[in-house]
């Protein structure tokens, strides 16, 4: 579904990604693991078009997207949840969801605020609360819900479990399970081993802008994980 083919991405003169390739199939949940500063967020930004790779190719459903601006990638069906959440603090929960809304895609039940509130009951309790007044966990749910409003067949989550209480991480795992059932592909960046282990099918490990390991999540041993990720 998504193919990233040896991209090289720079910020100014600094090269961050080196011939990085990865692949996500339909309905798959794939983790991108790596230390702080390894280049996970940069990979995601390259995919959705917030930065343009200097070389390499990214295709999504057979369409080249590496030169498209973010809004076009989004319309093609790539949902993106940034690591710093970036909810609109002066908009209410409902308005935040409205911003994420996209025309309904064929062949799937569209997400509506009501359905999302079933998934995230916390948000449903106060739909008119301003985003800026929500707790960190609620903001994380809102940013995921907001992206889901676009009914994307594939969603990219940048460190979704970062800084969340264990209960909320569980809720998150449940949500991703639900997305799996609906056939949504997921690419996510993670630090949390247990979380990755429970939700993902496959994992890539990046180190200093290069993919250095790839395997089914079951085959990824704790030792390998720690070898690349322990600080």
């Amino acid at each position: 579904m998504l193919q990233v083919d040896s991209i090289n991405t720079f910020y100014g003169k600094a090269q961050i990604l080196f011939d990085l390739s990865l692949e996500v199939d339909q309905g798959e949940v794939v983790a991108l693991l790596g230390r702080n500063g390894a280049g996970k967020s940069t990979t995601f930004k390259s995919i959705i078009g917030m930065v343009t790779p200097q070389s390499g190719c990214i295709t999504f459903n057979g369409k080249e997207i590496h030169r498209l601006p973010p809004h076009k990638s989004c319309v093609l069906g790539l949902g993106y949840v940034p690591e710093d959440r970036r909810i609109f603090s002066r908009l209410t929960i409902l308005e935040n969801l409205e911003v994420g809304k996209q025309p309904v895609r064929r062949g799937r039940v569209p997400w509506t605020p009501e359905r999302l509130f079933e998934l995230f009951p916390n948000l449903g309790e106060k739909p008119d609360q301003y985003g800026g007044n929500l707790s960190g966990g609620e903001q994380q749910m809102l940013t995921i819900a907001r992206t889901l409003m676009g009914n994307p067949p594939m969603i990219i989550l940048d460190e979704p479990s970062e800084g969340l209480a264990p209960v909320i991480v569980e809720l998150l795992a449940k949500t991703i399970g639900k997305l799996k059932v609906e056939g949504v592909s997921v690419l996510l960046a993670e630090h949390n081993w247990n979380f990755a282990k429970t939700v993902c099918h496959r994992a890539y490990i990046v180190q200093q802008g290069r993919i250095c390991h790839e395997s089914e999540i079951g085959e990824l041993s704790r030792e390998t994980y720690e070898k690349y990720l322990a600080i």
């Binding site: 959705i48 917030m50 601006p69 973010p70 809004h71 989004c74 319309v75 993106y80 940034p82 970036r86 609109f88 603090s89 002066r90 908009l91 911003v99 994420g100 996209q102 907001r146 992206t147 676009g150």
Partner: peptide
């Protein structure tokens, strides 16, 4: 508030 994010939301 955040133009870039609005773009990333389509």
């Amino acid at each position: 508030e955040d133009r870039e994010m609005v773009g990333a939301l389509g």
